[in-house]
Design a protein around this nucleic acid. Structure first.
Lengths: 326, 326
DNA sequence: GTGAAAGCGCTAACAT
DNA sequence: ATGTTAGCGCTTTCAC
């Protein structure tokens, strides 16, 4: 790999001049610019970003730490982030923590030691890992999930309101005994959606990991209750799929015997049988807003952190239709 | 941020000793090790990975360049890669090229200038970008899609065989006029699956981008033919979803009026209405194998590249059921 | 407008 | 076993 000195020699200028040309410094003689550019092309020179980052003690990389790469919710969010990042001259590296706080800690440490320009994080833990980031002065934006006890820019959906709307929708359709399957305690989305549910209903509650299997198991446990619920609000899309699978397995008719609403839309919620009523979040927009906050924070490290709450939207489909009169 | 010299001063040793301790060099006095570790903790010291990378002129980072983060096929693959990487001491950064060769080129350039230890790539273009990588000596593994005109380790599924099996399945079910929707010319998966299809059938063919909308449009165009096909083999999962949407929109009964088979399974292929017959690939395994090849290649840069082909499996569901007798 | 020189933080010869 | 020293490739004062 040729270095900047090789280019300098080839173009018969100093390394400083090459650097200026490559960084778009306007005070360079056009003739020299041409010579440098030619030399760069001839040698196939590529600046060493590692050296540059060391010298500047910063990079143009963002770490985006998400908790489940298999969840379409996150992938759409990432798209939103990427689009803004690209426009603002940053590259995005994606880190998948897999709902595992240890993995998350590893990625946080990496972001730190790699001098990432900023981090967008949907924390799967108590935010302890994220705290190191913030303390170190790295610009951080929390997305989807709030960071407990941390003063940091945050972008979330209206979890409580969305959950309330979903539960109310079930109640108004005539369901009597509405249960709730939510995520682990301490994950802000899980707690807030449970709270929204509790504004309307007070049935049996299950906590599960936020994956399909968790939803399956939780639903199985609800079906085993003496007095079965006649509707369930599931606070996460993947768990809702798991719940549906469980209901299909146990031959429980949806919405005949049991009504179902999920939180987070799925790209194929309308194609499944029955089609799934969901609380949709503006995922792409969530990503865009978070990215814009991060850009601002990088430019103005001192400003006061802001929290932005985006509205949700209830998509009514078959799974929550009015139950047959008793 | 404290540097290694701050730690050295605090522990009253040299920076070299701190470095030795931190890198697990066994030839350090246990007493000094303790002193250094204490100092590290007291100062909250974190090694600067950028400086280390510069000095060692290499990193422990892999770039994984995929073409569509929204496709569950890729996310499962990435999991397989991550699991092996973690075991081998590497971290994975994910780059989403969005089926856009320009974006891909940007990420390839980044991987190069960031001195990535290796790259796993599912190229969305002609592999021109990837060529720069290989020429520079960066260890590269092609996954899912072959890199044309490049001698490089490769892991793919049996695209031709899988497509042949899918088409034969439709033919044996009694379908007479089987069409094919495949991807862009030059994308190896698209071309090979088309070839597999042609081993059995010779109906109308459409090429579309590999996304849902592409499948929708292609199906619409097939429906507009004078002589409508009575079955379609769709060479990609997302396009299959688009095709299903189109058929639902036009009220074409599946499998009553038209049989359908997709390539690449979907986590919810069994939940949609009708459930979708697919050619499943061992996605997770694809990732694991690619990662293992990359580890080997990093250790043995000179060895001869190998190509590994993993078998596919036909998952028969409702969408391809026998058509009603004419 | 251009070049010389210092230094980002770390590691690895080399010397002791 | 430990310290001294040089240098990875780049950017950025500071002179001229």
């Amino acid at each position: 790999m040729p270095t900047i000195y090789d280019v300098a020699r080839q173009a018969a200028v100093s390394a400083a001049t090459v650097s200026r040309v490559l960084n778009g410094n306007k005070t360079v003689d056009p003739a020299m610019v041409a010579r440098v550019l030619t030399a760069v092309r001839e040698l196939g020179y590529r600046p060493n970003a590692v050296a540059r980052n060391l010298r500047r003690s910063q990079t143009t990389l963002w770490a985006v730490i998400i908790s489940d790469i298999g969840n379409p919710f996150f992938t759409s969010m990432v798209r939103g982030i990427e689009d803004v990042a690209q426009h603002s001259g940053y590259s995005v590296v994606l880190c998948n923590s897999d709902e595992n706080p240890d993995k998350e800690a590893v990625y946080v440490a990496a972001a730190l030691s790699q001098q990432m320009a900023g981090v967008i994080i949907a924390s799967s833990g108590n935010g302890k890992a994220a705290k190191t980031l913030i303390d170190s002065g790295t610009p951080v934006v929390a997305i989807d999930r709030e960071l407990p006890r941390a003063s940091v820019d945050t972008v979330v959906a209206d979890n409580e309101g969305g959950a309330e709307a979903a539960t109310r929708h079930l109640a108004e359709a005539g369901y009597q005994r509405i249960a709730c399957i939510t995520g682990p305690e301490g994950v802000s989305t899980a707690d807030l959606r449970l709270r929204g549910y509790h504004r309307v209903a007070d049935g049996p509650v299950r906590r599960a990991d936020l994956r399909e299997q968790g939803g399956y198991d939780a639903m199985a446990s609800l079906l085993a209750e003496d007095e079965r619920p006649d509707a369930v609000f599931v606070a996460n899309n993947l768990m809702a799929v798991g719940a549906m699978r469980c209901l299909a397995k146990h031959k429980v008719a949806v919405p005949g015997e049991l009504g179902l609403v999920g939180f987070d839309d799925l790209p194929w919620a309308d194609l499944v049988r029955p089609s799934l009523t969901t609380v949709a979040q503006p995922t792409y927009e969530l990503g865009r807003v978070a990215a814009r906050l991060l850009v601002d924070r990088i430019h103005t490290p001192a400003g006061k952190p802001s929290t932005i709450v985006l509205p949700t939207e209830l998509h009514v489909r078959e799974s929550s239709a009015r139950p047959p009169a008793p």
